[in-house]
Design a protein around this nucleic acid. Structure first.
Lengths: 224, 224
DNA sequence: TCGTGTCTACTGTTATAACAATTTTTGCGG
DNA sequence: CCGCAAAAATTGTTATAACAGTAGACACGA
């Protein structure tokens, strides 16, 4: 990995640092909060309250919220206060359906295009999911599950795919603590994910995409 | 459609007016500019220049640009100046592929779910496309084509579908004046769109989705 | 001629304040 | 206790100003 350099030429490659401006940090924090289901559906998100709790002025909070709004992760009330949405039953079905369309395609391509490093990372997330099931750690499960699916999307090499998928996931965030209660769901999730991992390792596109569809639909089956 | 009301109760239903705050008006203007291919790939979009040309301060312009950035329609340079992107060949292929996935599904559902009013509107856009071909009016074609596809997406009743599709379209904007030069493209586009319209009128999902796929792929065939 | 450093635009970010619109609270009258 | 109007608090939008990087021009020295 180390770049060779001509004799006598010292290296200045100390690497770039994490240069995140305020509103990006806030965006990431809110996104994470949303993904983990830490906001309740219908909750109001007034700028000044958030800004005070973050110790900043209104502007960077407003930036972050507007960005979330533009991808539908929060919605703005008639008076333009941002609100955590409460997806209807149909909206939930449609979100799951679109996700299954896109993620199935991504999984098939990931099976063909993934690197070994990526596969190892995905396997790591799969381990985390197993561990979360053993300890009934919902927080860990949510995070590992999210990372698992996003890592597959990245490995698909489809341009912009995470930009499209991430908001769809985030929109389900507020509901994520409503179901997935019993231990049975955990067990099925483990089985699904390991089947997907196998398919990726075997570079089998059909098995990967059918596995993803099965997982996406089953883990969002509210009528059960 | 008219709501009945109790006797003696006058109607105040004059309907809401277009209450767009500044940054939304600017967003719409920029979006339109992008869709019509009026920005050149790689063009810088400095806040003060745009604000001056719009006669506003920086803030609403910044709001609009950040919103465009969050859906990938513009990209921010390392120094955070917004720039009109130049999609690579692979990015273009992937955009077309994702669009064909989503629009095919939407067209199939639109065939089943559309109202007569929606069908009439879609037919209207189809007429505009024909007219644009007769007069070689590229501006009219771009707008009518866009409206045609978005109207189908709306008629599909899939939640959030336009939120997802619109940015994909807009990302192709900067390139839209590079091809579609000769009259032959126009003719094929007319044929494709009328075939889709027929399928919708006949409520034939398979024909609608295959028609859309054919149109999306053909009208973005750069290697021709 | 080429590299180096300095100075000056330029440019986006953030904080603050004034403003308008809305919501909530308060208080009065019945 | 209820209805309602007025007052106060809440809240998002926009403009402005101060600030911190960044890029380009320019001159100096090897």
């Amino acid at each position: 990995m180390q770049q060779s350099r001509p004799d006598g030429e010292p290296s200045y490659d100390v690497g770039p640092i994490n240069h995140h401006v305020l509103h990006e940090q806030i965006y990431d924090a809110l996104k994470r909060h949303m993904m983990m289901g830490r906001f309740t559906p219908g909750q109001r998100l007034p700028l000044r309250k958030l800004a005070q709790s973050l110790g900043t002025s209104l502007m960077p909070v407003r930036d972050a919220l507007q960005r979330l709004e533009s991808v539908g992760v929060v919605v703005s009330s008639p008076t333009r206060t941002m609100i955590v949405p409460e997806p209807t039953a149909k909206e939930q079905r449609d979100l799951v359906h679109i996700r299954s369309l896109l993620e199935a395609d991504a999984a098939a391509k990931a099976a063909l295009n993934h690197t070994e490093a990526e596969l190892a990372q995905i396997a790591g997330h799969c381990d985390s999911i197993r561990k979360s099931a053993e300890t009934d750690d919902l927080d860990l499960f949510l995070e590992a599950n999210y990372n698992f699916h996003m890592a597959i999307a990245v490995a698909s090499r489809i341009s912009f795919i995470t930009t499209i998928l991430e908001p769809l996931w985030l929109r389900m965030g507020p509901l994520v603590r409503n179901y997935m209660p019993n231990h049975d769901h955990f067990l099925r999730a483990i089985a699904n994910h390991e089947r997907i991992l196998e398919a990726l390792a075997a570079r089998d596109p059909e098995k990967a995409s059918s596995g993803i569809i099965h997982d996406v639909i089953e883990s969002n089956r509210f009528d059960a």
